[in-house]
């Protein structure tokens, strides 16, 4: 007689079991696709590749190879890198700088658009949001490729300018360099940043803005003292959502970066698929992830993310 049982207890007990049962497929996927592969990656980073064989004795050699000092430092952009394999440190620094440039550009470009969506669009808001989101869902590969068509030696900008008579021969500095990578990545990620910023702008209580105006703030003061601080949570998450994945990006540098525009992702890809040194590739992946995570936490601490979030919640 199930009906005679106190409902609370029945629902409470079977409810908990049912809840975990519902979660079990997802938990299985986490274990199989996240936990186990990550453990394998960490384990492999302590092994070494010996020709075709894997030497499974524990060693830190792969990590050591990334930072092994050399007598003569290698100079890159005027910075000395005192390592025997300076390429990893150089690419890591270069990737971080390029990702930072991309993140800054993305936020600067996305913020006014999000502001427009939140405060100026009254009709057709859903339409605007769909327009902004469509590119995010279309093929990343094709969006990157379209910049290759744009910037190429035989590309749209060069041929366009030439047929207009503005230049007489193609500009060769457009493609295959770090700025081309930064432009392409900015374009590829900018829609990703609009939405979180828009959401935090949309949440702002409009009466706060009225209060600021009533109390004598000019438009600019109102923006700087009310709107901007209250939109920081969305802006900061947008920045992290762009910065973290772009550091490891490898499609864009491959397609538009040329030899000078390679990033750390290219190095990882090459260690795994070309140089057949997956243990060192594993170590490099882990170090990259650790550096990015550390920098992100440092950034959140520096801007006082916790406090900002608590204040605007």
């Amino acid at each position: 007689m199930p009906d005679a049982m106190p409902r609370q207890t029945a629902a409470g007990f079977s409810g908990l079991a049912a809840g975990y049962a519902l979660l079990s497929p997802a938990m299985l996927i986490i274990v199989a696709m996240l936990v186990a592969p990550m453990l394998a990656l960490v384990t492999l980073s302590f092994w070494t590749q010996n020709g075709f064989e894997l030497d499974t004795s524990f060693t830190l050699a792969n990590y050591w190879a990334l930072i092994e000092p050399a007598d003569e430092p290698t100079m890159w952009m005027g910075i000395p890198f005192p390592f025997k394999n300076p390429v990893y440190a150089i690419l890591m620094l270069k990737s971080l700088v390029m990702s930072l440039a991309v993140t800054a550009a993305v936020i600067l470009i996305a913020y006014p658009m999000a502001y427009f969506l939140a405060f100026r669009v009254t009709r057709y808001k859903a339409l605007w949001i769909i327009i902004i989101t469509i590119p995010f869902w279309t093929s990343y590969l094709l969006r990157v490729f379209s910049w290759k068509i744009m910037l190429g030696f035989n590309g749209v900008i060069n041929s366009g300018l030439m047929s207009l008579g503005i230049i007489s021969e193609p500009l060769s500095f457009l493609l295959y360099n770090p700025p081309a990578v930064v432009i392409t990545l900015t374009h590829a990620w900018v829609t990703f940043a609009v939405l979180p910023i828009y959401v935090s702008l949309e949440k702002i209580d409009r009466s706060l803005l009225e209060a600021a105006t009533d109390l004598g703030d000019s438009k600019w003061q109102r923006f700087r003292r009310v709107t901007l601080p209250l939109s920081l949570p969305g802006t900061i998450s947008a920045a992290l959502l762009v910065f973290i994945p772009t550091v490891g990006d490898y499609v864009t540098p491959t397609l538009v970066g040329g030899p000078g525009g390679t990033m750390i992702g290219n190095s990882i890809q090459s260690l795994f698929l070309k140089q057949d040194n997956s243990p060192r590739g594993a170590a490099l992946s882990i170090v990259m992830m650790a550096i990015v995570a550390l920098l992100s936490l440092l950034f959140m601490w520096a801007v006082g993310y916790r406090k900002i979030r608590a204040r605007s919640a």
Binding site: L34, M38, L44, I244, P245, T246, Y250, G265, S278, M289
Partner: peptide, 16 residues
């Protein structure tokens, strides 16, 4: 998967 670069998951799955 929304934040971690997919190359990390790709190589981790490749390894295992």
């Amino acid at each position: 998967p929304l934040v971690v670069p997919s190359i990390i998951f790709a190589v981790a799955l490749l390894v295992i």
